[in-house]
Computed example of a mutant assay.
Amino acid sequence: MGLLDNLVGAFLKLTDPTPEYTGPRCLLERNSVGGCDKCASVCPHEAISLESYRVEIDEVKCTSCGLCTAVCPGIALEFPLGPIQEGLHRGQGQIRCSKVGGSGDEVRCLGQLTPGVLAEAGSKFGPLTLAHGDCAGCKIGSAEVPARVEWAVAEGRKYYPPLEATLQTQALPGAAVGRREFFGAMLGGAKRSAAELVPDLPFSAPEAEDARAQRPPELRLREIAARRAEEVRWPRIHIAEGCTLCPVCTNVCPTRAVERVRENVEGLSEEYTVTLTVAACTGCGACLSSCPPQVISLGEASKAEVFGERLELYRGVPPWYDL
């Protein structure tokens, strides 16, 4: 692919209103028991269809409201979060949708605000102010947008419990922005745009074999917020007695938070361990519904567990070794 093709492709990517879809993180593609239809259910314009165990987005119907990205359990649907984060930073915790006038930065629709974006901004600026227009009559989102934003705020409290946000229909008064912050934000945005437009080099680094291993920006924002909190309620799983050490939980996990490792223990039979990277757990529940003996439960992790070593959830010799 030549330079011109790369530039055209990057431009289309920047102007494409549809979210990016990472199939390996989708619970449908991971064959989670019960599947998942949250993105299709929340879409106000029927732009999402679930065909052949994957998500298909109609580029004509999609309005870029972002509601699907906020509710996706495996973070398989994403818009670039950097510009939204920068807007909240420039506004010092204030942002408005594209249908509200006044000062301050805007996002196309408040539906694009994810739990991680809100938690990170709240951890830095305190109470947030989010302005929206007439959602019931809006052609971008729907009347459900305010309720969905409230849900995202509630989810954000798992990573930064003091998070508070006020939704209003009045125009934002705007926040005072210093020259350093203004030019710093502009430079950050310019760097990001330049990175998008630079074509791939002939010897670029190979992509990871499993896209689930690439920590999505949403999880990184949740981590930033959690570091600023005294305590967190980050989701984590527990495994009770009765685990057969089968690979189902690791197979359905959208972010490789759960892993099963085979170990050779001297003097004993071969053991397996199931471990968890808490910071990669989205709390999607795929492992709960898919676990054959139903011994997995969802709980909350402490801050020490989030930023500590991988947790050992279960260890033993699989019963099928006796077969």
Rank of each mutant, 00 (worst) to 15 (best):
K124D: 12
C39I: 05
W234L: 09
E56W: 04
P80M: 03
F203L: 15
D37W: 12
R227T: 13
H132N: 08
A279C: 05
H45I: 08
A10W: 06
S297I: 03
P127E: 13
E223P: 00
I84E: 00
S41P: 02
G174L: 03
T15W: 02
A205T: 12
L12I: 04
R233A: 15
E259T: 13
L245S: 06
C253G: 04
V100F: 04
E20M: 06
V232M: 03
E241M: 09
E120F: 12
I224K: 15
E46N: 12
V149K: 01
S302H: 02
V252M: 01
T250M: 09
G2R: 11
E209G: 14
A40K: 12
L14D: 13
Y53D: 12
D134Q: 06
C253F: 08
E241H: 11
E241Y: 06
L7E: 05
C281D: 01
P80K: 01
K139Q: 12
L88K: 07
L201W: 13
G66F: 01
G35K: 06
C36P: 02
Q85S: 13
C39D: 07
E59I: 12
Y272K: 12
G188T: 08
E59R: 13
P293A: 03
E241I: 03
R310L: 08
C287G: 09
R315D: 03
C72G: 07
G34D: 08
C284H: 00
P254Y: 09
A213W: 11
L113P: 02
P199G: 14
W234D: 00
C109G: 04
I140G: 00
F79I: 11
F11P: 00
G137A: 08
K38W: 07
R315P: 01
G267F: 04
R310I: 06
G101M: 05
Y321S: 14
L323T: 11
T169K: 12
L197E: 04
G283D: 05
E270M: 08
A131D: 01
A211P: 15
A229P: 05
G133H: 02
E300R: 12
G82E: 13
S52I: 10
V100D: 04
T18K: 02
